[in-house]
């Protein structure tokens, strides 16, 4: 149900300091999101693909993840060219696709691919536990980080719990169809999930208190300075500057 597909790897990117990766992903994402020069965005896609290669991401799962973003893109490609004002590009019967509309669709598609690929290469290549501690190092409030880490820790447990409830329902011949009984059953399953989550939370909280929890989590992760740290940092900053320049003067 839940797996961290890209988190385990031995590539150069996996060994780079996670704080640097998060910062680099943030810089690159915002740069790519805020420019709308087609040439610059093509460069952004190429750079993101380069990052994916450097992280040695498996191609098929990455493709699946990008395809998941395709639903809304498809809607945009169908609707936007026909409704966007501008010079007609193609006329079929009463429908006219505008040049500006098609250009905007292209821009959105390139941005989606560039940002999601870079995010996968830089951030999805760490376990969420690492991300949590990294966010703490970067100044995110401790409470939010702890909430995130607990959510991560128990997501697998709760998912397991849900599968157990669903299996029990199936044993009793529950077959989901479109009727009120199905929705009622799912509502009770989810309700039970929330009840069990809450009871587990109470036990976890008591256990944390027993271990002297005082509002701090400690991280045992450490990252050595590798040659990749300055290299990745420099590459991302340089590409962001080039993209911005292309946007303004391209």
């Amino acid at each position: 149900m839940i797996e961290e597909l890209f988190a385990d790897g031995r590539s150069a990117i996996h060994r780079t300091d996670p704080a640097l990766r998060v910062a680099a992903a943030t810089l690159f994402s915002f740069t790519a999101a805020l420019i709308d020069h087609v040439g610059a965005l093509l460069l952004a896609v190429v750079f993101a693909a380069g990052l994916a290669l450097a992280a040695r991401l498996p191609a098929r799962p990455l493709g699946k993840r990008l395809a998941a973003a395709g639903g809304l893109l498809l809607l945009v490609w169908v609707v936007l060219p026909l409704t966007y004002d501008g010079q007609p590009l193609l006329t079929v019967g009463p429908l006219t696709a505008s040049r500006e509309g098609v250009r905007l669709c292209l821009v959105i598609t390139l941005k989606t691919i560039a940002i999601l690929t870079a995010f996968t290469a830089l951030v999805a290549t760490m376990h969420l536990a690492t991300l949590g501690h990294t966010l703490h190092r970067l100044g995110v409030p401790a409470k939010l980080v702890q909430l995130l880490l607990l959510a991560y820790r128990y997501a697998f447990v709760i998912a397991h719990e849900y599968q157990r409830l669903l299996r029990a329902a199936r044993m009793r011949n529950f077959r989901p169809t479109t009727n009120l009984h199905t929705y009622k059953t799912y509502a009770y399953l989810v309700g039970m999930l929330f009840v069990r989550a809450s009871e587990r939370a109470r036990r976890v909280h008591l256990a944390m208190k027993c271990r002297g929890f005082n509002g701090r989590f400690h991280s045992l992760d450490s990252y050595q300075a590798t040659v990749w740290n300055p290299l990745l940092g420099a590459a991302v900053v340089l590409v962001s500057i080039v993209l911005t320049a292309m946007h303004w003067w391209g």
Binding site: M1, I2, P141, K143, L144, Q146, L147, L148, L149, L150, A151, Y152, R153, Y154, A155, V157, I158, A159, Y162, P176, T177, T178, T182, Y183, Y186, L189, V190, L193, F194, A197, S198, R200, A201, R202, V204, H205, M208, F213, G215
Partner: peptide, 30 residues
């Protein structure tokens, strides 16, 4: 966050995982 004190962090965190898992529950419609 201001309204959550440290004693409620476990509750909020594990309810966040329940919310996350609930978003993976698919129900049929037609």
């Amino acid at each position: 966050l201001k309204r959550l004190d440290y004693d409620q962090i476990a509750q909020a965190g594990i309810l966040a995982s329940a919310f996350f898992v609930a978003s993976l529950v698919h129900v049929p419609i037609g």
